[in-house]
Design a protein around this nucleic acid. Structure first.
Lengths: 155, 155
DNA sequence: GTTAGTGCAAACCTTTTGCAGCTCT
DNA sequence: AGAGCTGCAAAAGGTTTGCACTAAC
């Protein structure tokens, strides 16, 4: 449904719905979240082996400029690539575990308050926001402590 | 003062205070905020023409890992480089004008609330946070509107 | 004297660009 | 038909690595 909406809105703007774009749009919308360009490319190639990496980058840029996807960094947890997610109705923060890489999403009142305050205090017109929180998840905290111990002993 | 503290804390960890690092540390601390590696390199070269770009990257990485500076993306407003600022006591968000590039800082209650809620709800151990807000500043909004008009006429 | 740090060159990774040919509408 | 899009190759931009030499402690 969301994909179909996106497709329609693109077509209205005179954007052509090519075979490649259909594949990419479906992938972005369906296959969970936080794909980077390379992963998307690999997935797309399964459906169309001739599809080029450059087309992935061009499509992502178009969607980003058009405000249909958001670009994330996820604290550069595993390199300097960017991640993409379809733009959601609800504003949310990303919580990234720096040990296991797991990404959680936080939806909360304070996010809206920040937005409101910034608009009011600065007369700023907000187009996009990005809140990223890095640290260790509940699962990784004990393991991290142990790794630190081991490192201390080893030294 | 902050620089001296930093220097001491580094020395305690067995980090050597080389001529190059002194220059870079001073620059990062003094020369305003939001320098990227290349700018820092250019500034450092004025003081030591032999100082290498690689040393800048290595120093920044050390400071980042050591939690002495924070790395920012500033919405990739002008490329994919990273920006650095000395880690401040107070948590703050960065507000980036996508037209003129001006960066404002927002200190506010809601930032602390997010932190608290994330810690409580997820049992997450927060090490670093990054909140970036992109849009148009009060000055640029009318000019942006005009540019859009012109583009529409031109098309 | 050791060990950490530097400079240099070269590699690396991610992303963008130029251009000829193809394809959606 | 014609603008828009794709693939290919090549380049760009930012950052990292290997290694021999140098300097801080």
């Amino acid at each position: 449904m969301a994909v179909e909406t996106t497709k329609s809105s693109l077509q209205l703007q005179g954007v052509r719905l090519t075979r490649q774009r259909k594949i990419l749009l479906d992938l972005i919308d369906k296959s969970g979240k936080h794909l980077d360009a390379e992963s998307l490319y690999q997935l797309a190639r399964l459906q169309d082996p001739k599809l080029n990496r450059v087309t992935v980058y061009r499509t992502l840029k178009m969607l980003k400029v058009g405000g249909l996807v958001d670009e994330l960094d996820l604290m550069h947890h595993s390199g300097d690539q960017h991640y993409y997610e379809t733009r959601m109705k609800r504003e949310h923060a990303h919580i990234i575990c720096l040990r296991c890489g797991k990404v959680e999403e936080f939806f909360g009142e304070p996010l809206l308050q920040i937005r409101k305050q910034v608009e009011e205090m600065f007369g700023f017109q907000i187009l996009l926001t990005r809140t990223e929180i890095g640290g260790y998840c509940a699962t990784c905290q004990p393991q991290r402590a142990q790794e630190l111990d081991e490192a201390a002993v080893g030294a």
